[in-house]
């Protein structure tokens, strides 16, 4: 289990940010290499992401689902469940957004299994950290 914390700022009102992070069609492409394959419902999408880990390149395919939503506190959790298409591993994560004026915080707790996990927690951590940092950069322009 890897836990990471990040912040982001968009300079836009909370309500705008709230709608943006809950719109899976908008938010999933903000993850580098991520795309929506099929929007199954307002709260659920099939998606895939291509990730480079060191010398390895892997494609994870799975679902992203809004599993918690607290309008008053402006807190939402997106649950990611995915499997490497080569069958070499799994990547699951709970991504919790807590919004405040002009931006917010992201707490990620990720569980990576299989070959990517074998690259070591250090690699997993730094790949995820870079991925989320990049994500916060794209959120700023959402």
């Amino acid at each position: 289990m890897v836990e990471l914390d990040h912040t982001f700022s968009t300079g836009k009102p909370t309500e705008y940010n709230w709608d943006a992070i809950l719109d899976l069609d908008r938010i999933i492409p903000c993850v580098e290499g991520g795309k929506v394959l099929e929007r199954e419902s307002p709260d659920r999408a099939k998606a895939e992401i291509k990730v480079k880990m060191g010398a390895m390149s892997m494609t994870f395919r799975g679902t992203v689902e809004v599993t918690e939503r607290d309008e008053d506190a402006h807190r939402a959790v997106l649950k990611v469940s995915s499997k490497d298409v080569g069958g070499q591993g799994y990547a699951n994560a709970d991504v919790a957004f807590t919004l405040s004026d002009g931006g917010g915080r992201i707490h990620t707790s990720a569980q990576v299994n299989g070959k990517p996990a074998s690259m070591g927690e250090g690699v997993v951590y730094s790949v995820l950290d870079a991925l989320i940092n990049d994500f916060t950069g794209k959120l700023a322009k959402i």
Partner: peptide, 14 residues
């Protein structure tokens, strides 16, 4: 190994 049994030493970097 991590708590799920993932081998964390599968390369000569680790």
């Amino acid at each position: 190994f991590d708590e799920d049994g993932n081998c964390l030493s599968a390369s000569l970097m680790d």
